[in-house]
């Protein structure tokens, strides 16, 4: 669906009723190029309305315009992204079925839920990243990365909120990999939203979030961001020291990547990557994203393959460490 610029209000009401019709009209036979000439199905294996879904829809609209074909965002949830990812992996490698996800593809594969693994897909491009932070209630004594690593090593047994096998679980495990004898209580609460609720209500002691998930609560003084796991401080949280600064060189991010089924022709992958590169170069899009604490971080081709291979290795070693 297209972004609606400031039209007259009456036109907008009409748009509500007619926009999908317009979308259907777009899908007639294309004239000039051979690909794409049909609507593209973008599978989002995360729930509608969540961060990944909204991000995918934000990117899909301008990218569809560049491509000259509509992109229909379809949420296929379940199995910790395994069901949606496998559906894409099994569909025809013709560039008309794509996947938009993040580290969850790797974690669900490492946990064994997605048995086809990340090799069943070809990455098109990485678009943007979010920085991982840990946060505590404002009244908690924990104030730095050092405090956190002390707390997990002593006998206070802090409660860490996770969703088993999901990104936040692996983020904590990546942090704890360097602590030889950690003693924590992993409490299953769910993803970012439920973790925040549990943190505010005192049902967990530490939560791990992306920057955008804690920003408001930090601004309101309800929650304190303890440290960010990035090479540099996050522009949205300039006062929060990185773990690296505290002597713990750990970098954890949530990186949005689009995939196509394995064996999709390279020229089609290139067409898609070109269109996505155009989208990500757009100033309006970049501003929209940075306002949400999502940092544009475009990667394609060999650089992307290498980065993903490295990430997959890390995730696998984390998974191996918990078995």
């Amino acid at each position: 669906m297209t972004l609606i610029p400031t039209k007259t209000r009456r036109a907008m009401i009409r748009a509500i009723l007619a926009a999908p019709l317009g979308l259907a009209a777009l899908t007639g036979p294309a004239l000039a190029q051979a690909y794409p000439e049909e609507p593209i199905r973008l599978v989002v294996p995360h729930g509608a309305g969540g961060g990944t879904d909204v991000f995918s829809r934000l990117i899909a609209a301008p990218t569809a315009e560049t491509l000259g074909a509509s992109i229909a965002v379809v949420n296929v949830t379940g199995g910790g992204t395994a069901i949606g990812a496998q559906e894409v992996a099994r569909s025809d490698p013709d560039g008309y079925t794509l996947l938009s996800t993040h580290v969850a593809l790797l974690t669900s594969s490492a946990m064994g839920a997605n048995q086809m693994g990340p090799d069943s897909l070809t990455p098109i491009a990485q678009l943007a990243s979010e920085t991982q932070v840990i946060a505590v209630r404002a009244d908690s004594p924990m104030a730095s990365a050092g405090d956190f690593f002390d707390a997990v090593a002593d006998d206070s047994r802090p409660k860490l909120g996770i969703s088993a096998g999901a990104g936040n679980h692996f983020a904590f495990l990546q942090m704890l990999m360097n602590v030889p004898d950690y003693d924590v209580n992993f409490v299953p609460v769910g993803g970012g939203g439920p973790s925040m609720t549990a943190l505010l209500g005192g049902n967990i002691d530490v939560g791990t979030f992306t920057v955008s998930e804690v920003l408001d609560q930090v601004a309101a003084g309800e929650v304190r961001a303890v440290t960010v796991f990035a090479a540099e401080r996050d522009p949205a949280l300039p006062d929060v020291a990185t773990a690296t600064e505290a002597g713990f060189p750990i970098e954890i991010g949530l990186d949005y990547v689009w995939y196509a089924p394995k064996d999709t022709p390279t020229d089609r992958i290139a067409t898609l990557a070109d269109a996505l590169e155009t989208t990500m170069a757009d100033e309006t899009i970049r501003t929209t994203l940075t306002e949400r604490a999502i940092l544009p971080n475009f990667l394609r081709g060999d650089a992307l393959e290498a980065t993903l291979a490295e990430r997959w290795e890390t995730i696998q070693s984390v998974a191996a460490s918990i078995r």
């Binding site: 669906m1 009723l17 999908p20 019709l21 979308l23 259907a24 199905r41 229909a72 379809v74």
Partner: peptide, 8 residues
């Protein structure tokens, strides 16, 4: 379903 609710 297809025109209003975009169910493919």
């Amino acid at each position: 379903f297809t025109q209003v609710f975009v169910v493919l």
